[in-house]
Amino acid sequence: MRYDLAIIGGGLAGTATAYYACLAGARVILLERRDVNLGASGSNAGSIHAQIPFDPFRNLGVDWARHYSEVLPLFIQSIGLWERLEQELGGDLGFVAKGGLMVAGSDDEMSALRIKADIERAQGLRIDLWTGDDLDRHAPFLTGGFPGGAFCPIEGKADPFKVAPLFLRRAREAGLTLRRNAPVTAIAPEQGGFAVTTGDEVIHATRVVNAAGADAAAVARMVGVSVPIEAHAIQVSVTEKRPALLPWLLYFTSEKLTLKQAAEGGFLIGGGWPARMRGGPVVDHRSVLRNLALAQRLVPGLGDVQIVRSWAALVNGTPDWRPVLGEVPQVPGFFLNLFPWMGFTAGPAVSRAIAALALGETPDVDLAPFSL
């Protein structure tokens, strides 16, 4: 049997691409080297981002931010899909979009937020700049004295344990073939498509989508393609349950932080703090302590909170933070669905576009600026 599409990678990008391709009537096989949702898609903090992250903005500058801002319409489009996904997929994804607040740690950082907001607004993203008085009025849970912040009303959170599995379930109902524990060891062009080797099985597919996340560079090398993607070991912590306190996704400009409160009451503390590598990613207690101290600096109500679980995962990144999307020019029929750092947010819209592109249709978002 020849498949229309072979998709490599069982995270959000792979399962969502499979879902949209199966909905279009394609014969699709999904190849996952371990099991679905065991990588970054199921191990991230569940943040739904739209703002340009402050840490690279500070380090890489305004010109970088203007170039990077081309991804913001993808976030906007994808968050629009997120708002309808629970109904479309028929399940709970834990999606809530009450907004995201980036708190400025100093007057200089507030000035930088104003510059960044102008770049974001030019791409159609709504950003409300708040003064220190606005913070006191709207965010009384914060430590006082910060000069202001930037509020984006479409940001929020979703449950990373639920998203890819639900995409997978609906894709299988629509005809998807799944191979678990099936690491791809070779991809060879052949007449009419590709021969994809996994174990003792050779799968024939007209087109291939590389959605392998942190392993995507190794997969791309199988067809002679170099992809500037790298793996980073980072970690997340969750606290004991507390009464409702924090309605938004919270960031801080002075240090890396994402903080939000789940519906059941636990606080998720992340932001890209490094884990250690010991054969695989393992939690670094130093990052746990510094990340928690930072959350407590912003939100005094967390002063005596207990962490109940921390975990580490590999996430993919590119040097310029931009995604690598679409058909590889020198290997027709081979597609990349690689979205660094913010792929959880962008996954639905980008994967729908990749599925359309790989089936010879015109996607509803322009991926050309992100071609390899």
Rank of each mutant, 00 (worst) to 15 (best):
residue 2 R to N: 15
residue 5 L to M: 02
residue 7 I to D: 04
residue 10 G to S: 09
residue 12 L to R: 02
residue 12 L to P: 02
residue 12 L to C: 05
residue 16 A to D: 06
residue 21 A to R: 02
residue 30 L to W: 00
residue 35 D to N: 08
residue 35 D to C: 05
residue 37 N to H: 12
residue 39 G to Q: 06
residue 45 A to R: 01
residue 46 G to T: 07
residue 50 A to W: 03
residue 52 I to N: 03
residue 65 A to K: 14
residue 71 V to N: 03
residue 73 P to F: 08
residue 76 I to K: 12
residue 78 S to Y: 13
residue 80 G to S: 13
residue 81 L to A: 04
residue 81 L to H: 07
residue 85 L to T: 05
residue 87 Q to V: 05
residue 101 L to I: 13
residue 102 M to C: 14
residue 103 V to P: 03
residue 107 D to L: 09
residue 113 L to R: 05
residue 118 D to S: 14
residue 120 E to S: 04
residue 121 R to Q: 15
residue 124 G to N: 13
residue 127 I to A: 12
residue 130 W to N: 02
residue 139 A to N: 04
residue 144 G to N: 04
residue 150 A to Y: 01
residue 152 C to I: 04
residue 155 E to H: 06
residue 156 G to N: 10
residue 169 R to W: 01
residue 169 R to K: 13
residue 181 N to T: 02
residue 190 E to K: 14
residue 197 T to N: 04
residue 200 D to G: 07
residue 202 V to M: 03
residue 204 H to V: 08
residue 212 A to D: 01
residue 222 M to A: 07
residue 225 V to E: 15
residue 228 P to S: 08
residue 228 P to D: 06
residue 231 A to D: 01
residue 234 I to E: 10
residue 237 S to R: 02
residue 239 T to H: 04
residue 241 K to W: 01
residue 242 R to T: 13
residue 243 P to H: 04
residue 243 P to V: 09
residue 245 L to M: 15
residue 249 L to P: 02
residue 249 L to F: 07
residue 251 Y to W: 08
residue 254 S to Q: 14
residue 258 T to P: 00
residue 269 I to P: 01
residue 271 G to L: 03
residue 278 R to N: 14
residue 282 V to Y: 05
residue 285 H to M: 11
residue 287 S to P: 09
residue 288 V to S: 09
residue 296 Q to V: 12
residue 297 R to F: 07
residue 299 V to S: 05
residue 302 L to D: 11
residue 306 Q to T: 10
residue 316 N to R: 03
residue 320 D to P: 10
residue 321 W to T: 03
residue 323 P to D: 04
residue 323 P to L: 02
residue 326 G to H: 08
residue 333 G to Q: 08
residue 338 L to Y: 00
residue 339 F to P: 00
residue 346 A to H: 09
residue 363 P to E: 14
residue 364 D to F: 03
residue 367 L to A: 08
residue 368 A to V: 10
residue 372 L to H: 15
